[in-house]
Design a binder for these strands. Structure first.
Lengths: 333, 333
DNA sequence: CTGAAAGCGCTTACAG
DNA sequence: CTGAAAGCGCTTACAG
């Protein structure tokens, strides 16, 4: 019921109503303690009365901190990152930070566009799960905020990285499967560096332990539940039938299990399956899925802690934070 | 390799280098055609040379259009909205619009906070899947942009709505199941208005067609794959065993199917299952899941078309866009 | 087709 | 603890 229904109240309106300067209102809003108690009360009342909502565009421009963070993920459906991103988004919202969501798909061009957009919005940080092309790396150099790569630990990150060793994860899975007596693994590898490193780690360790040849098949990105059908059909045409299928995601593993069961195979007795990521479905599937747990909430916390330190002008504690991983042996292998 | 490596180039830098005013550069950037060809070329070169990335905070403040849209969804994991949101995010990115992602969870307070944040960022539109509390509705009144509710068609939307009739969807499912000869449905209903409307529609139609009692059980929001286990266990304790379980999402349906199969039941012969949403898993599950298809891409397109019209100052074509739905009979029922 | 200039709504040294 | 004032980097009537 204001006099000017078509205009959002501004700092000025609040200041006039409270009988102080805009500077004081601004201070109160950003750091209530620096203002005298009596003044604070008057401002508070004025804010309530006007229904003032600060213009964060103006605030960001003036302070050159946007309180906005870009999160770049490949896609939404059946994504292995969803739990991490969910934890991230909740944490960020709690600290008053807005999340700009970028879906990179699988083309580097889209990634570059999104990074440009993020820079244009002067985000405080970019959190990325995307691979870094050399062109993208060039762009990132011009980014004044904090660039955080998650779910991986590159040699020489342009900003910081919070992740784990995919190679070691691959090794652990190989060791585990050999110890369980499996002999003929089929590796389902998605394109992309990370999947490749897990593959390399797996093959290395498998053969170091005296395992024989490792069969492999590629799967499109994003690897999802529905791919299980094709993978299984392909597998059936192999000369030598594997005794365990190692998948790059739990969704894919779930798909393979469903197909195997539909074909009358018992999992894990006749065919074992391993997933990756410990998504929520992994523990609820029948049989429950043996997988590698990545602590998404921890990745989120570490990333956000780094953003906070960066905002306070402190240098990062370390350029690479290794959050590790944990093989979870369940029923499927 | 600039002289001032620590400063992002501004419009001014570009203007000086191109030998024109900032106004002209701005015009070129926003609408290249209004600038003379020769001038355009010089500006282009200057932009390239400086590596200029426009500050969208400043642009948004000056023009009072942010080219940013807030998308509010309950959560990310196993979400029935993911395909819609994915289509939306891609379309928006194509038109140079940034997506602010808000995870509302299930508390109205969080929704209100996110709407405040969106208003604070002066987003051009808010696209929401969240239920509208009366307090939220109050907030929305002060939002100068376009408020779009999707996946539902409220009586009297504060902005516009793009969705379908949940009641009719419930009715259609009831009719379909009766025609297939099912007699003892178990309805798994999530909290929330939309699920409630489907429930009402189902029961109405079921009984209008001479069906008997309808058994029901509630499930927590978000309804997800893992809930299938509990639902199935509960079902087994019922005095009268249902012949079909009607679920509020395909993920939940998938969970019930997995549990039923683990218990040795054949789906659909011994227990049929119906999902909702036609998520990508529905067509790939074994058996494939009978479900209700919602055209998420169409919802996305309609929403974005409305935003575009709004940006051009045109009034919305209609306050409610009914995109309908389509029952897809597959193997599971 | 282009420029000079005001203005968008904040923040933040600086001074008191 | 508070205010006056400059400035953040754009856009956009207005005039020519």
């Amino acid at each position: 019921m204001s006099d000017q229904p078509n205009r959002n109240p501004t700092l000025d309106d609040v200041a006039v109503l409270a009988g102080v300067s805009t500077a004081t209102v601004s201070r109160f809003l950003n750091n209530p303690k620096v203002v005298a108690a009596a003044t604070a009360e008057r401002i508070q009342a004025a804010v309530a009365q006007t229904g003032y909502i600060p213009n964060l565009l103006a605030g960001g421009l003036a302070s050159s901190k946007s309180r906005m963070v870009a999160v770049l993920i490949p896609h939404l459906t059946d994504s292995i990152f969803n739990d991490t991103i969910q934890a991230m988004a909740e944490e960020l919202a709690n600290s008053g930070t807005t999340v700009m969501m970028g879906l990179t798909g699988i083309t580097p061009e889209r990634t570059d566009e999104l990074i440009q957009a993020a820079i244009g919005r002067r985000v405080d940080a970019i959190i990325s799960t995307a691979p870094l092309s050399s062109r993208t790396a060039e762009l990132v150099k011009r980014f004044p905020g904090l660039f955080i790569q998650i779910w991986e630990l590159p040699e020489d990150p342009p900003g910081i990285a919070v992740g784990f060793s995919h190679r070691d994860a691959g090794r652990d899975v190989a060791r585990f499967l050999q110890s369980r007596g499996y002999r003929r693994p089929l590796l389902v590898t998605a394109q992309g560096t990370r999947a490749g490193m897990r593959r390399d780690g797996f093959v290395e360790e498998w053969q170091a332990l005296g395992g024989g040849d490792v069969q492999e098949t590629m799967v499109d990105i994003p690897s999802r539940f529905g791919h299980g059908r094709r993978i299984f059909a392909e597998m059936r045409r192999l000369d030598e039938q594997p005794d365990v299928v190692v998948c790059g995601s739990d969704y894919l593993a779930q798909g393979v299990i469903v197909e195997a069961q539909a074909a009358g195979l018992r999992v894990p007795d006749q065919l074992a399956v391993v997933g990756f990521g410990n998504s929520s479905i992994a523990g609820d599937m029948r049989p429950t899925i043996t997988t590698v747990d990545i602590d998404g909430a921890r990745i989120a916390r570490e990333a956000i802690a780094a953003i906070r330190r960066h905002a306070e002008g402190q240098p990062p504690r370390e350029r690479s934070v290794d959050v590790g991983f944990r093989l979870i042996a369940r029923e499927s292998a």
